[in-house]
Design a binder for these strands. Structure first.
Lengths: 155, 155
DNA sequence: ACCTCGCTATACATAATGCCCAGAGAATGC
DNA sequence: GCATTCTCTGGGCATTATGTATAGCGAGGT
């Protein structure tokens, strides 16, 4: 279940140059192609690699504003709120967290003004008692996984 | 800069079946291969597609616990704190937000007990005044982009 | 000593890629 | 109205990668 050093190196390589193929990866890593193929298969059936989806930048789509909203949910309304938030395209991510019916969601918007519209749409729902929003100014550490992979593979 | 319907369909297709090639994509979309190739090139140089990095699941690496920490930062210590957090592998993401020197970061840990260690490491730094942590219980909406792509491409 | 497992090395048919080009249609500027 | 520019099409061709299979080899555990 844990990954070894070769798995780690493979993941790093794929993260740096995602479009290289199995053959090229095997050359870089100095192992046989079959080995890389087997490792990749295992990592995917393990669930370590969920997929290779394109990494789309919301800013480039015209949504340069990101915000995080903490929502307080009325007891028993969780499922309804989840269903509601799923229908809002600007909700990129939703988590339920410890606390009293709290949720945390990541939003994007076309502008600060547009963010108001998004928030109104998000909180304009019965089960939501209160919402507090934090607008993201900088993103010093974009979503990353390599350092964790290195740690998990024993550096 | 905005994307059209074909771009949107291409992104959806890539998101659903990331390992299909340019040729297969062109067959599915009913356009010529050169067109898909040109669109892909443009989306990448546009920055709409940042890359195709492997989507690694921290849980499968042995880090099943996710948490969000809000950090209050001492005035003028922002850069130091950022540098510090960058060195912590369990910090997957870091944002600076509106508010009074606030940051929001996403953490993972091997267990709830391990989370304590991670938090101690995160907040064991001079510039951090206060931290409050919310542990993620469920993730009803995992990070997604397709609905936004559909909206941006005019459905 | 034996067995299993993962890696190597090689083979071969099929498929995809990178790159080229000429031509058709639509949109834009003059 | 007309010329220019873009984008898409459809084809070709050499090179490269993939999927799949095989046999041998060495390290580990029992």
């Amino acid at each position: 279940m844990a990954i070894d050093h070769l798995d780690g190196a493979l993941l790093e390589l794929l993260a740096r140059e995602p479009r290289i193929g199995v053959l090229e990866a095997s050359r870089r890593l100095g192992v046989a192609r079959g080995t890389v193929q087997a490792r990749l298969d295992r990592l995917q059936s393990n669930g370590v690699i969920r997929g290779f989806g394109p990494d789309v930048d919301p800013a480039a789509l015209g949504y340069p504003v990101t915000a995080f909203a903490t929502l307080e949910i009325k007891q028993g309304q969780g499922a309804d709120v989840r269903a509601h938030l799923t229908t809002v395209p600007e909700v990129l991510e939703l988590h339920t967290t410890t606390g009293h019916g709290d949720m945390l969601c990541r939003l994007v918007a076309r502008s600060n003004a547009d963010l108001q519209r998004v928030i109104d749409r998000v909180v304009g729902f019965d089960g939501i008692v209160r919402a507090s929003t934090a607008i993201v100014m900088e993103n010093p550490v974009p979503l990353r996984i390599i350092p964790l992979v290195q740690q998990a593979s024993g550096d």
